[in-house]
């Protein structure tokens, strides 16, 4: 990606010069234009699942996730229309109503990306009834915990485990509303033979779904970890 031709685009009316192969999101970031993200994490592959980073491209009726959409010469991007703000707010409302999220008793309270985004967008209540289904909490590992009641299925942990640690312990089972992050072949964490207990899943989890027991949450989180390791690998 180092040697590629320059590409000129417009983001919110600002002219930005970037290069071929760059995504709209990283082009915007470098230009200092903020686009909210949730499932995206610097250093991991883009997933395009949370739809918070959707943007409009002038001339297209479609919306594009900026984390996966490559730039192309001359495109004009709108990052913050009323429609996008409305959709992002609704996205957060839906994520919050999918599981019994209760911030006040969550380990991530105060360090949660979902909580921060809800605050940012003024999601002051949920118009949609929540799902009251209890999900499993796996407490078998010596110090790592996964609480599926809090999981937002952003797949950051899966990607970190696969792409950074390289062991691919974590993956997803089932589909749709029944999707769930699993360990190995859907086993207890303690019986996992492939888990290296590296904690990267906990470091990248945006919410309180994966955490290290008896550790302050602020110490577990490391949103730079993937980027840091990649930079040391020289990739």
């Amino acid at each position: 990606m180092s040697v590629s031709s320059p590409v000129k685009i417009k983001i919110d009316g600002v002219e930005v010069t970037t290069y071929e192969g760059d995504t709209i999101l990283s082009a915007a970031k470098r230009a200092g234009i903020y686009i909210p993200t949730l499932c995206y994490l610097d250093g991991l592959s883009s997933y395009g699942g949370c739809r918070l980073c959707i943007v409009e491209v002038k001339g297209s009726p479609k919306l594009f996730p900026s984390c996966t959409t490559p730039v192309s010469n001359g495109i004009e991007i709108i990052t913050n229309s009323e429609k996008l703000r409305k959709f992002r707010k609704l996205t957060l409302e839906l994520i919050l109503s999918e599981k019994p999220h209760i911030c006040s008793i969550c380990v991530a309270n105060g360090h949660c990306e979902l909580q921060d985004l809800a605050k940012e967008f003024g999601v002051d209540h949920l118009r949609i009834e929540r799902e009251w289904t209890a999900h499993k909490i796996d407490l078998t590992h010596d110090f790592l915990v996964i609480d599926h009641n809090r999981c937002i299925l952003c797949a950051r942990c899966i990607r970190a485990c696969d792409e950074i640690e390289g062991v691919h312990v974590l993956d997803m089972k089932m589909r749709g509303k029944d999707s769930q992050v699993i360990i190995d072949m859907d086993e207890d964490w303690a019986s996992s033979r492939s888990c290296t207990s590296c904690r990267k899943c906990a470091m990248v989890c945006p919410v309180g779904a994966i955490y290290v027991r008896d550790k302050p949450f602020s110490e577990i989180k490391d949103k730079e970890i993937a980027k840091f390791i990649l930079s040391r690998r020289g990739s």
Partner: peptide, 22 residues
């Protein structure tokens, strides 16, 4: 469609479920 949604993106996974519930 709720049953067949893959679950990757929020609108389809949660949005459809809520439509069905309503």
């Amino acid at each position: 469609c709720v049953d067949e949604s893959c679950g990757r993106c929020v609108p389809c996974r949660v949005g459809l479920l809520k439509i069905r519930n309503i």
